[in-house]
Design a protein around this nucleic acid. Sequence first.
DNA 1: AGAGGTACCTGGCAGC
DNA 2: TGCTGCCAGGTACCTC
Length: 271
Amino acid sequence: MPELPEVETTRRGIAPHIVGQVIDHIIVRQDHLRWPVPTKAMKVLHKQQIKSVTRRGKYLLLATTPGTIIIHLGMSGSLRILNKDITATKHDHVDIIFTNGACLRLRDPRRFGAVLWTAENVAQHPLLKGLGPEPLSDDFNEEYLFAKTRKRKIAIKQLLMDSHVVVGVGNIYANEALFRAGIRPGLAAGRINRQRLQLLTTAIKEVLQAAIEQGGTTLRDFTASDGKPGYFKQHLFVYGRADENCAICGSLIKHIKQGQRASYYCPVCQT
DNA sequence: AGAGGTACCTGGCAGC
DNA sequence: TGCTGCCAGGTACCTC
């Protein structure tokens, strides 16, 4: 489900409901997610207050005094704020119940997501330590991407989806950003000149920012934490549009596979 | 070091 | 209707 805009939409949706709230208890119905849910370790969270809800890449970080809850939504995860008495269904794996009766519920049919816990500095957690810069920050710029791509033979699209290069750019937005920048997804990263990388960094920032403003992209069942769908789908130029006409030049959008993932591009607009 | 493939898991859909 | 095969928004980890 979620790339950076969807995770950010989720963060903005849940934060007002849980920041300042006090955890009563946590229910783990299914601890077999991507990694085992540390049910025992999280017992220290009893009566602890949520201090903040932040995001690093696609990881959501719920800070408390004793440590940080790390949540990743994987491919199919979503978080909702509900009344604790609403019955859980099949894929509702974890509930964080607050003393005011609210419940933060993680639903994740494919179980590629994760709920983890660290009592240490969360930035030093093994999963977060090696992550690349935030795409919307000033640290992610043409200078940086130029340095990161030199001598790299990997296709630019696959490089963009590497979280050690830049976080938060998944399949949808990698395709869309490359379209906006006029760059073919299969082009070797190291062969792209500085000027085109400038266009690309700008395109990535613009497409992510626009998607956040639209509440994310709803493809199958993504809804924000308030249950509303994202509206960015109507702004997708290439993703999922194989054999449709390019909105700019009318050519048929091509569909290829790169590293087991679907790529879409306009053979005329992208070179 | 970098590139490429595999694994984890369920649900939805097309095709037969 | 039911079966099979394929596809899906992610990413750590393995091998070459």
